[in-house]
Structures are given as structure tokens and as C-alpha cells.
Nucleic acid binder design. Structure first.
Lengths: 161, 161
DNA sequence: GTTTCTATTTATAACGT
DNA sequence: TACGTTATAAATAGAAA
């Protein structure tokens, strides 16, 4: 983020990684505290360092941290509230681009539907038999794509060794 | 942090506070992900918004988040104050440190194994039938986890307008 | 390894719509 | 109230000590 843009990938060089880790842990903890204080909300950050030290936690109070965590674990459908951290702006000045945008949205809508399908299947709410061939085609396409992502992450993990 | 230095105190004005909240949640989640990916560490951030349906969490996978939280809660109450960041940390004896390292190594090895399994299956070098039930369990766990991450990304892309 | 020192990239507070 | 823009404050990557 300085002197060079950062690539969101595991830092191979050990010493560089350690240095970055230190700086960023400090920054992350600070940001957590700031959000909590400025906006008056409960926020908790837990970091397991590469060392054997033990987790770094905010808020500093063990009781407070566990309270927030307990609240979290009690909520079943936590992820419904996950949302919009995305800055994607394929905005444009011409009609052509607006049309492109519409197309993309439709495509993404489809992806969401398929994503839910996958989820339902994994959760036993649905079975492959209940899915029509058209949907199945999309399903395979998406899975194939996701597999690539997984392979990439696996590769990164290995190299990070 | 712009146009004026920020005062670390509760923002009285409701609309300003709300606007700041939205921006900073976005930033905090991003920072959490960056630290995790760049440095290859487990990190978890939970935010309870003022009037939202549920907490905002990173990592997006419920499984992953709960695993990290469990690790945290499982630790004995051997907390000790530390010098940096007003954080708290567990003091451990040298024996425990060694044990922890061993545990991490085993975990990493297992991750690599599972990763190779997925790879082999995708490349037709192996089939699901050849995998024993124990391995299959890990495999499903990993895949399910990845799927959730994927769902999150899809959702974010969609709602990101 | 760690601390300090920039050069730059990011994050974002205050505005404008 | 929400979203896009802009001026600044912060964070931080890489270099140097």
C-alpha cells in the first residue's frame, strides 16, 4: 500500500511477511477500536499470529470479547447480514454501457440462484434429482469455476509452506 | 481521517455516525481479509451494527468463523496483559509452545493432503470411491466451507450494486 | 530480526447531488 | 437518506540503518 500496490496473496518471503504482519495487526486492532468507539457498536477482532503466542484480541477484556462471541454463536443465520463491501462500478456515460450493466446484473442474478442451489444440496434441502437439466448445466459451470478458485487457494497454501 | 483529523469519541450526530459506520465497516472487513490472506493467519472480525438484522462477520464462512472462535474460547483463562495494543495474550510455557507448533504442522500437512485429494479427483487420477470415509469427511468439510465463501462473494458482488 | 524514514497507496470526513 | 466526489488524514511497502 505504499511504494507499490499490494497483491492480495500470501506473502512468500518470511521476513517480509512477518514485518507486514506486525504492522497490519496494529492497524487492524486500531481500526476495530475506532469503529467501536466512534459508532458505539460492539466489534470484536481475533487474530491468531503465526507464532505460538496466542490470539490477539480486541476488545482487550476477556469477558467482553466472550460476550460478543457468544452473541454471535447464538445467532443461527448470521450470514444473512453479510453485504455490500464491493465497489464495483461498471457505471458509464453511454447507453451501451448501461445495457452492458443490465446484462451483467442478470448474469449475476443467475449466479446467485445457482449458488443457493449448491447450498441447498449441501444442506440436504434438495437433491440433484430435483434439479432440471438447464439448471444442472449452470450448476456444473459454476462448480467448475469454483473448483479453480479452490485449487488456487490450495496452491497458495502449499507454496506458503 | 480526511479533511479533518478524527476525534476518537462517540459521534453524536446520528446521520454522520451512520455514514461513518458504513464506510468503516467496509474498511475493517477488508483489512481483516487482507491480514488473513497476506500473512496466512486466522483472523476473525465480528461487528454488531446499531440496527441490523445480525452481525457482520469475516470470514464469511460460518464454519470457518466458528472454528476460529472455538479456538479462542477453548483456551484456558490464562490471559495476561501485554504491552502492545492494549491486547491480551496467553502466556505459555516452552513445552506448550512446542506442542502448539507440532499441532500447526500437522494441521498444515492435513490441509495439503486434502488439497491433493481434490486435485487428483479433478484430474481423474482418483475417484470418490477410492477415498475412505475419514478422508471424505475432511473433503466435504473443505468443500462446504469453500462453497460458503463463494456464496458470500457472489452475494457481495450482487448487492454491491 | 527491528526501528525509522519516506514515497505512495488507501481510507475516509466533509461536501455536493 | 443514500450515493458519488474530493481533499486530507492514515496506513503501510520497501529501503536504509
Amino acid at each position: 500500500m505504499a511504494r507499490k500496490k499490494v497483491n492480495l496473496a500470501f506473502i512468500q518471503n518470511a521476513s517480509t511477511r512477518r514485518a507486514t504482519y506486525k504492522k497490519r495487526v496494529q492497524g487492524l486492532i486500531k481500526k476495530t477500536e475506532e469503529l467501536s468507539v466512534l459508532c458505539g457498536v460492539d466489534a470484536c477482532t481475533i487474530i491468531y499470529g503465526p507464532n505460538e503466542e496466542g490470539p490477539i484480541v480486541w476488545p482487550p477484556s476477556e469477558v467482553e470479547a466472550k460476550r460478543i462471541i457468544s452473541d454471535f454463536k447464538r445467532k443461527p443465520e448470521v450470514y444473512q447480514s453479510q453485504r455490500k463491501f464491493n465497489q464495483e462500478t461498471f457505471l458509464s456515460e453511454s447507453i451501451k454501457k448501461v445495457e452492458d450493466k443490465l446484462l451483467k446484473l442478470k448474469k449475476k442474478n443467475r449466479e446467485i440462484e445457482v449458488g443457493k442451489m449448491v447450498s441447498d444440496i449441501l444442506n440436504g434441502k434438495s437433491t440433484l434429482k430435483e434439479i432440471n437439466s438447464s439448471d444442472l448445466g449452470d450448476l456444473l459451470w459454476v462448480i467448475e469455476d469454483k473448483i479453480k478458485t479452490i485449487e488456487y487457494r490450495i496452491r497458495v497454501t502449499k507454496e506458503g509452506k
